[in-house]
Design a protein around this nucleic acid. Structure first.
Length: 900
RNA sequence: GGGCGCGUAGCUCAGUGGGAGAGCGCUCGCUUCACACGCGAGAGGUCGCUGGUUCGAAACCCGCCGCGCCCACCA
C-alpha cells in the first residue's frame, strides 16, 4: 500500500499525471498478454476490428475501444474471481487497407515529384512498407491512451508473412472448390483508384440530371424515342428493347433501329425488364456500360461495345469522333451533335441515384472488365443457419433481419483490385500454354507444360483478408496453441456500416474454414454524430478528436462519457457526459482520499492496517449502504453482460454520487473523528473500527466495480486501498454478497432521506441560516433508528419527540422543562410531521405559503388516488398488489395531510 | 420501392402498461474542516398530432405530420 499521507495534498484527480504511469505498470505486469492455455469455451477473447494503418483514432474507435475494454476488463476480473485458469485476450492488429494506404503513399510520391508508375511496382511496395513502419503504429499508441488492455505483445498485421500465407491458402481452397473464378463481367469501375470495387463500396447519391429523349430512326421508316441521362453511352448501344406485352410496339420487335452519329443497326428486342409506363417504353441497351443492359445483353446475345475506358475517357476503338474526351465532356459533345441533327426530342430534369466510389469519392463508371469473382451462395447458407439457430447472436436484434435479408440475396463478390498494395492473387499464368496455376507458393513451372509462369498482377480486396481476421491472427491454418485457446472469440463489436462488408464475410469464412462461427455475439454499437446531428467528419469540420478530449478531461472521463451516451441507436456527441465522467473520477478520488486520511488519522496507521477486510456494520446507515452495494454490484454485472453500457456507467455514477457520497459519507463523517486524529462524536473505539472496516470495504468494492469503465482513477486508488501491492486490473470483480441485502435498513434510511430533503426545502423557503440549528419536535413514526441522523442532516435540535405508535424511548435529547412548546410551523415528512418550535429569524409567511402549496399538492394527489380507488373497474380488474399499493399510498398521504 | 429507427424539461438523452426522470444549462442559498471540476434547495414538461385497445397509455395498435439511417439495376 502506498503512503496515505501523499494524498493529503492531492485535492484533485489529475489524469495527466497518472495515466501514463499506470499504463506502464499494466503493460509491465503481463496481465494483457495471457499464455495460450485453457480452452476457448472457458477463455474470453475479442478480436479488435483492425484499424487501418493509415488511420488515427476517431470517435468511433474511441467508443468501440471503450466498449471492448469494458468487456475485456470485466471478464478478466471475473475470471480472477471465478475461474483462475481461464484467460482473457484482446487480439490486436492493424489492416493494410489497400486503397487508403496506396493513396497515402501515392500522395507522398507526388509531393516528391514522382509517381508509382515512375518508380515501378517493387519500389512502390517497398515504399509502402517503409511508410507503414513509420506511421503504422500511431493508432496503436493512441489506443493505449484510451487505456485499452489489448494484447500488445502480439500485434498482427494483415500483410504479415503468416497472415499472407493464410490468405493464399484460403484462395487456393475456394478456387479448388470452384467458388472463385475469373470472368469478363460488368463491374463498378472506380476511376479514382483505377480499380474495380465491390458493390458494397459503392455509395449512391441523389442528383438531378437532365433526362434526354432521343429519336432513333428505324431501318425502313419510322422511329423510336429513347430516354437517357447518359447520352454519351449511346455510342455503345447494341439494341433497343421494348416490353413483350407492349401492344404499341409489338410489330417493332425484330426490326432494326439506326444508331445516330454511328449508323450501326440495332436489333429491337423484347425483354420483360423494360417498364411500359416509364418514358416511351422504348429503352436503349448499352451492355458494356450499364449493369441492367449487361444482363439484357446476355439474355439476347447482344454485342458489347466498350466506349468508355478504364481511364474514364472515350475509347479510341469505339469513341468515334469523341475518342479521348472525358465522360462529361463527351456528354456535352454528343448532345451538341445530336442537337445538330435535330434528334433531341425533349430535355427534362430528372432526380435519380448516381453511384460514387466510397473510397475515392469519384463517380463509378460501370464497364466490362476481366476480374476475379467469388460465388457466395454456398458460403452464405451455413452463415444464415448460424444466425437463425442463435449460434451467432446479433445485438441489438433488429439488425438480425437486415443481415438475413442481405445474405438471402447475396451476389458474387468481385475480389480482385488493380492495386499494388495488398495480397497479390496466388494465380500464375503459363506464358507458354496459358494454363492457370493456382498455388499457395509460386510453382517452379506450369503444371501442364512446365512453361514459365507469370503471377497475376491484381491484389485481393482488403476485405478478403479481413474476413479471416479472428482466426488468421491466431495462426490459422496451423493448429497453434493460440488458436486452440482463443478461437472462437466471444464477441465482435463494431459499427453497423461494416456489417456486410466485414462481419457477414467473417461469419461465412469462419464457418467454411474452421467449421465454427468466429464469435458467438455481434454487438452493433452507436454511431456518434456531431453535437448538431450531422456526421462527424473531417471534411465537414464536424469531427471531435478523442485524443484532445482525453487531454482535456482524462481517459476515464472520455470512456465514461462515450459509454454513457451510447445506445442502441445513433447518438449525438455529448460533452456533458464526458464532464460527468470527469466529475465521477474526481468524486471517487476525493471520497477515497477523505476516507483514508480520516481513518488513518483517527485509528493510526497500525490499527488501520489491521482492520478486518470484511464489513462490520454497526448502524442503520452501515447496513443501508451495504445493502445498496449489493444492488449496484448485481446491476452493473448484469448490464455489462447485456451490453447495456450506458446504464452500467450511469448506474455507477448514481451510486457514487447519490448514495455513497451525498448520503453515506455525510452520515458517517462525524463518527470518523476529525482530521487531526482527535476523537469524533463517536468515542467508542471499537465502533470506529467497525465503521472504518465497513467504509473501506464499500470503497474497495466500489472502486473495483467501476474499474472496467474508469480504469485509471480506480487503479490509482487501488494503490492506497489495497496493501497487497497488486494491480486492480488483475483482481477479482466484486460479486454481490446477498447476505448483506437489508430491506429494513433501506426502508428506514430512505424515509429519513426523504424527511431530510423536506426539512431542507422548508429551511430554504423560510430563509433559515444555513448553519443554524432549529429547535423542532419529531411527530412521526418510523424514525426510531434514524432520528439523530435526520437531526444532524437537517440541522434540527430535536426536543420532545412524539412518535406515535411506538413505545421505544426517543433517542434524542429531551427537554424536560418545556414538554409541550407550541409549534410555530409544521413540515410534512413521511409518516407525520416535524413541528418547528422557534420562529426566530424565520420568514413564517413564506413558510405558510410553502405549507399551503404543499397542502394543495397533497390534496390533488389524494383526489387522484381516491378517484382511482373508487373506480369499480380498477378494483375489479387491476392486480391486487397494485390496488393495495394505491390504498397504502392513500393512507400515507392522508397522514401527511392531517399533519399539516 | 423495401426495411429499420427516432420525435419526452432550454440542450443531450433515459424511461415501454399503474406516482413524468437524469446530466448540463437556469434561479436561490452556502468559503458546512473530501471534492467550488464542490455542497444544499428550486423553477421548468398538453411525453409530435389524431383515433383506438385497456379499469388505467409517454409506453400497446391504426392513421397522420416531421426527422434520420440502411438496402434496392425504373432508363
Amino acid at each position: 500500500m502506498s503512503d496515505i499521507a501523499e494524498l493529503e495534498t492531492r485535492t484533485r484527480f489529475d489524469p495527466a499525471e497518472v495515466e501514463s504511469r499506470i499504463f506502464e505498470r499494466w503493460l509491465a505486469s503481463g496481465l494483457f498478454h495471457p499464455a495460450p492455455e485453457g480452452d476457448a469455451c472457458e477463455n474470453y477473447s475479442i478480436a479488435i476490428p483492425p484499424p487501418n494503418v493509415t488511420g488515427s483514432l476517431h470517435m468511433g474507435h474511441a467508443l468501440n475501444g471503450s466498449i471492448q475494454d469494458v468487456l475485456i476488463r470485466y471478464h478478466r476480473m471475473k475470471a480472477a474471481a471465478l475461474s483462475p485458469c481461464s484467460r482473457t485476450k484482446w487480439i490486436l492488429g492493424t489492416d493494410h487497407a489497400g486503397i487508403a494506404t496506396q493513396a497515402q503513399v501515392e500522395k507522398a510520391l507526388a509531393a516528391e515529384g514522382t509517381s508509382r508508375h515512375k518508380i515501378g511496382r517493387e519500389a512502390f511496395v517497398a515504399r509502402a512498407w517503409e511508410w507503414r513502419e513509420h506511421y503504422g503504429h500511431t493508432i496503436v499508441e493512441q489506443f493505449k491512451r484510451l487505456g485499452a488492455s489489448c494484447d500488445y505483445a502480439e500485434e498482427r498485421f494483415t500483410l504479415d508473412e503468416g497472415y499472407a500465407r493464410a490468405v493464399a491458402d484460403v484462395f487456393v481452397r475456394l478456387y479448388e472448390k470452384g467458388w472463385i473464378y475469373r470472368d469478363r463481367y460488368i463491374v463498378n469501375w472506380d476511376p479514382g483508384s483505377r480499380s474495380a470495387i465491390s458493390d458494397l463500396e459503392v455509395q449512391e447519391r441523389r442528383e438531378t440530371d437532365t433526362l434526354y429523349s432521343i429519336r432513333y430512326d428505324l431501318d425502313g421508316g419510322g422511329s423510336v424515342t429513347i430516354a437517357t441521362v447518359r447520352p454519351e453511352t449511346m455510342l455503345g448501344d447494341t439494341a433497343v428493347a421494348v416490353h413483350p406485352d407492349d401492344e404499341r410496339y409489338r410489330d417493332l420487335v425484330g426490326r432494326k433501329a439506326i444508331l445516330p452519329l454511328v449508323g450501326r443497326h440495332l436489333p429491337i428486342v423484347a425483354d420483360e425488364y423494360v417498364k411500359m409506363d416509364f418514358g416511351t417504353g422504348q429503352l436503349k441497351i448499352t451492355p458494356a456500360h450499364d449493369p441492367n443492359d449487361f444482363e439484357i445483353g446476355r439474355r439476347h446475345d447482344l454485342d458489347q461495345v466498350s466506349v468508355i475506358g478504364e481511364d474514364g475517357r472515350m475509347t479510341a476503338e469505339a469513341g468515334e469522333r469523341f475518342a479521348g474526351l472525358a465522360v462529361m465532356q463527351a456528354r456535352e459533345a454528343v448532345v451538341a451533335a445530336l442537337e445538330e441533327e435535330g434528334r433531341i426530342v425533349a430535355r427534362d430534369l430528372y432526380e435519380h441515384e448516381v453511384p460514387y466510389s466510397h473510397r475515392s469519392g469519384e463517380r463509378i463508371e460501370p464497364l466490362i472488365s476481366l476480374q476475379w469473382f467469388m460465388d457466395m451462395t454456398a458460403l452464405s447458407k451455413p452463415a444464415i443457419r448460424a444466425v437463425l439457430d442463435g449460434d451467432v447472436r446479433i445485438v441489438p436484434d433488429n439488425h438480425r433481419r437486415v443481415y438475413l435479408d442481405w445474405m438471402a440475396a447475396i451476389r458474387p463478390w468481385c475480389i480482385s483490385r488493380q492495386l499494388w498494395w495488398g495480397h497479390r492473387l496466388p494465380v500464375y499464368y503459363c506464358e507458354t500454354c496459358a494454363h492457370v496455376n493456382v498455388a499457395v507458393s509460386e510453382p517452379d513451372g506450369c503444371s501442364e507444360c512446365g512453361g514459365r509462369l507469370r503471377q497475376e498482377e491484381d491484389v485481393l480486396d482488403t476485405w478478403f483478408s479481413s474476413a479471416l481476421w479472428p482466426f488468421a491472427t491466431l495462426g490459422w491454418p496451423e493448429q497453434t496453441p493460440e488458436l486452440q485457446a482463443f478461437y472462437p472469440t466471444d464477441v465482435l463489436s463494431t459499427a453497423r456500416d461494416i456489417l456486410f462488408l466485414w462481419v457477414a464475410r467473417m461469419i461465412m469464412m469462419g464457418i467454411e474454414l474452421t467449421g465454427r462461427p468466429p464469435f458467438s455475439d455481434v454487438y452493433i454499437h452507436s454511431v456518434i454524430q456531431a453535437p448538431d446531428g450531422r456526421r462527424m467528419s473531417k471534411s465537414l469540420g464536424t469531427g471531435i478528436d478523442p485524443l484532445r478530449e482525453i487531454e482535456r478531461h482524462g481517459a476515464d472521463a472520455v470512456r465514461f462519457g462515450l459509454l454513457a451516451m451510447s445506445s442502441t441507436q445513433d447518438v449525438r456527441y455529448s460533452a456533458e457526459k464526458v464532464q460527468q465522467g470527469q466529475a465521477l473520477a474526481n468524486k471517487l478520488f476525493n471520497a477515497t482520499r477523505f476516507a483514508l486520511l480520516r481513518v488513518h488519522a483517527s485509528l493510526g496507521a497500525e490499527a488501520a492496517a489491521e482492520l478486518e477486510p470484511e464489513p462490520l456494520p454497526s448502524t442503520v446507515e452501515d447496513r443501508w449502504i451495504l445493502s445498496r452495494l449489493v444492488q449496484i454490484e448485481t446491476d452493473t454485472a448484469a448490464r455489462i453482460e447485456d451490453y447495456d453500457f450506458s446504464h452500467a456507467a450511469l448506474g455507477l455514477y448514481d451510486f457514487v454520487y447519490g448514495e455513497l457520497c451525498d448520503w453515506y459519507l455525510e452520515l458517517v463523517k462525524h463518527r470518523l473523528g476529525d482530521r487531526d486524529g482527535g476523537e469524533g462524536d463517536d468515542a467508542d473505539c471499537r465502533s470506529r473500527e467497525a465503521l472504518a472496516a465497513t467504509l473501506l470495504y464499500v470503497l474497495r468494492q466500489t472502486v473495483a466495480l467501476a474499474h472496467p469503465v474508469i480504469p485509471f482513477v480506480t487503479e490509482e486508488l487501488w494503490r492506497y486501498l489495497d496493501d497487497s501491492n497488486g494491480l486492480l486490473a488483475g483482481c477479482a470483480y466484486p460479486r454481490a454478497d446477498g447476505s448483506l441485502a437489508d430491506l429494513e435498513a433501506e426502508v428506514e434510511l430512505e424515509r429519513a432521506i426523504e424527511a431530510t430533503v423536506a426539512v431542507r426545502g422548508w429551511r430554504d423557503s423560510v430563509g433559515a441560516r444555513a448553519g443554524a440549528s432549529i429547535p423542532a419536535r419529531l411527530c412521526a413514526a418510523g424514525y426510531e433508528a434514524t432520528a439523530p441522523l435526520l437531526a444532524r442532516m437537517a440541522r434540527l435540535t430535536l426536543v420532545d419527540t412524539d412518535t406515535p405508535g411506538t413505545q421505544s424511548p426517543p433517542p434524542v435529547q429531551s427537554d424536560a422543562t418545556s414538554t409541550r412548546r407550541q409549534a410555530v410551523a409544521s413540515v410534512a415528512i413521511p409518516g407525520g410531521t416535524i413541528e418547528i418550535l422557534s420562529a426566530e429569524g424565520l420568514d413564517l409567511d413564506a413558510a405558510e405559503r410553502r405549507r399551503s402549496a404543499a397542502e394543495q399538492k397533497l390534496r390533488s394527489e389524494i383526489e387522484r388516488v381516491r378517484g382511482k380507488l373508487e373506480n369499480p373497474g380498477f378494483l375489479a380488474k387491476a392486480p391486487a398488489a397494485v390496488v393495495e399499493g394505491e390504498r397504502e399510498r392513500l393512507r400515507r398521504l392522508t397522514v401527511e395531510l392531517e399533519a399539516l
